[in-house]
Each structure stands twice: as C-alpha cells, then as structure tokens.
Nucleic acid binder design. Structure first.
Lengths: 179, 179
DNA sequence: GCAGGGCGGCTAACGGTGTTAGCCGCATCC
DNA sequence: GGATGCGGCTAACACCGTTAGCCGCCCTGC
C-alpha cells in the first residue's frame, strides 16, 4: 500500500513553495527553462536539495498538473454559476483559462494523466461541469471536450493559419454540438 | 534568400537513410530514445557524423514531420477516393493513421509547425480533403479538424477513462458536425 | 598519373540535464 | 544533554546536443 497524504495537505509548506516557484518559472519562461537547477536558483538553494522534498522532477510536474486541473475546474464551475446550463459559457471559460496559461496547460495535457498520483476526485471534478451541460450525455461530453481541447491546443501551437477566424470556428463547432 | 531544394529531392540519399532510421527508432522506442547517439548507433556511425548531413536534431525532426504530413495526406486522399464526400471515411482514416503512428503523430503535432522548412504546399495538401468534404466551409473544417485531433491526441495520451466508448464519442461528434 | 578537394567518417571535449551519494549544521524532543 | 532528523551543501555520474579538428578515400582536372 502506498500511503497517500489527504488531499487537504498533500504537501509540506516547503514543497508548496517549490511548486509555486516551479509554476512561476514555467509560466514565465516555458518548459525548456523549468529545470531543477533554475528552479533551485529561484529558491536560493542548490538543485540536489530539491530532492529532499520531491523524489524526482516528475513529482513536481504532477503537482503542477494537479493545480491546473483544480484551477480549470474552478473556472468552469464559476462559469456554470454565472450562466447555468450554458455550454458556450463553459467553452469560453475553458478557452480563456488555457490561453492564459499555455505552458501549464500543455504540461498538464500533453502526457498521460498520472491518475494514481493525483488527488482523488480531481479528474472527475474538472469534467463534471461539461457533463452537466451535456445533460449527462457522456458521448456528447467527450466529443465536446475533444473539440475544445483540439481548438485550444492547435491554437497554442500556432497550427491554424495566421488569418484564421477562430471565434467563428468555435461558434460553428459549438452550434453543431449543442444546437 | 534561403535556397530551398525542390520538393522532389530535398535530401541526399544518405540523409534519407538517416531519416528512415530516425523514423523506425521513434516509432519503435518513442521520443525519449530518439537521440543523436542512438540514431547514429542504429546507422553504425557516431553521433557527430550526423551533423555532416543535418545542421541539428531539429532538422531531422522537421523531416519526420514532413513525412507524417505527407503520409496522412495520402491516407486522407485514399479515403476520399474510396468514399467521395464522406466525412466519416475521412475521420476514420485520420484516426487509424494517427493511432498506428502515435509517436510520429505527436512529434509532428505537439509543437509549432516549422512552415518555412516544410515543402511548399504540403500543409495545404494535408488539409484539402477535409475542406472539400466540408463543402469549402472553412469554419466547419477547422472545427472538425479540432474535434478529430482532440479525440486522437486525448486517446493517445490515455486521457479518456479506460472504459470510455470512443467509437460512440466519434460518431456523436461527427453526426453533430456533419448531419 | 598525379594533385586537389571535398565527402563522410572519426575522437575529444564542452556545457547542460536529471539524479545520487555522502556530509553537516541546526532545531527539536526525550 | 544527547539523539534524531530536517534541509541544506559539494562532488560526481551518466547522458544529452553540439563543436572543433583530424583523416582516409574517391572523384575530378590537368
């Protein structure tokens, strides 16, 4: 049995400081500069000292993933409160959050979900607002999620032509999926 | 002006061998083992010799991206020939190709497109079958592309629950986008 | 037939990466 | 007051992409 600390305080205070610094570093400078040495620099310590708080770099990234999941869940829940049942409001909130934190969004999204190491229930919580807006239709919710993620990640990677009208594509897709 | 070799023979024979080895290595072992040293090993030479043929690793990856774009364009064109106008057939071909080459698909997809270094017209060629199937509706084509990419990349990353019925989600999304 | 040039290998090395081993100062607690 | 352990440290390792510089061989021009 791997003992997992309760979701309320899975991290020591110092570990939380490290995660906060890692998040700042990632969002400011991108993944290439999220390095154990530069992270340690920012905290005024040496890289090997980080291993007193996390077993490896991956564990730090898992915490960043957890924060992204939680924050996006909060953003979606807030949108739901503002405009109950509105899929357009959810989509807009999703897009705004992802584009405001592209490096974090990529980190949390472009690799397998470390489900075993994440707080229990977090993945479901992040998915629930969309599922509710889809009236419990799982297939529709998954298709809509794929659409939203596709739009956001393609935009982040500059995959669309520079002159593409992405607002129009969003509207077109949402109208089709949720007429 | 940067002179770019014509699309027919942008690479020397030896460079093509290197790209082929890189592709095998990537598809067999994943991106973590696509290393200048292991790539050289597979060719029976030393890593620095690779730099006689490519300026850097990025240039090799660009060639892999070009191959993925071309092959997926061919897969889509073949599907179009088999079932003209069928968006479902295009989607199936896209999904099958991506899932058959997940590492290559990720490499070509999860970073900005190196448009300046790609053969002219390749990006458009890869996009045209879908645009045709959408009757020239750019917004619909982009929404559909985002949906398909989202489905594929989320599946590759194991983002959906293990028991999710992805066939049903594909059908649901395609039906909505192309009733 | 011979000189020159360049293609395509090679070794050695540099700086950067994640990570480990082992040391130590200092606070806390019996 | 002595033990424990937390949280720093330095040194070092293996691996990464990449550069510098050397060299053998083949092809060409004379």
């Amino acid at each position: 049995m791997t003992e997992r600390p309760p979701a309320t305080d899975r991290l020591t205070p110092r570990a939380r400081e490290i995660v906060a610094a890692a998040r700042d570093l990632l969002e400011e400078s991108g993944p290439a500069l999220l390095t154990m040495r530069t992270l340690a620099d920012r905290l005024g310590i040496r890289a090997p000292s980080l291993y007193k708080h996390f077993p490896d770099k991956h564990a730090v990234e898992v915490e960043l993933t957890a924060r992204m999941l939680q924050e996006s869940a909060e953003a979606l829940e807030a949108a739901e409160t503002r405009a109950p049942g509105s899929l357009a409001a959810l989509a807009e909130a999703y897009r705004v959050y992802a584009l405001a934190h592209p490096h974090l969004y990529r980190l949390a999204t472009e690799r397998p979900l470390p489900r075993a190491e994440l707080p229990a229930g977090l993945e479901d919580r992040a998915a629930l607002p969309l599922l509710r807006a889809c009236g419990g239709d799982l297939d529709l919710a998954r298709a809509t999620w794929a659409f939203a993620h596709g739009m956001v990640i393609l935009e982040i990677h500059g995959r669309f032509p520079a002159d593409a009208d992405l607002d129009a594509a969003w509207k077109r897709g949402l109208k089709a999926l949720h007429p």
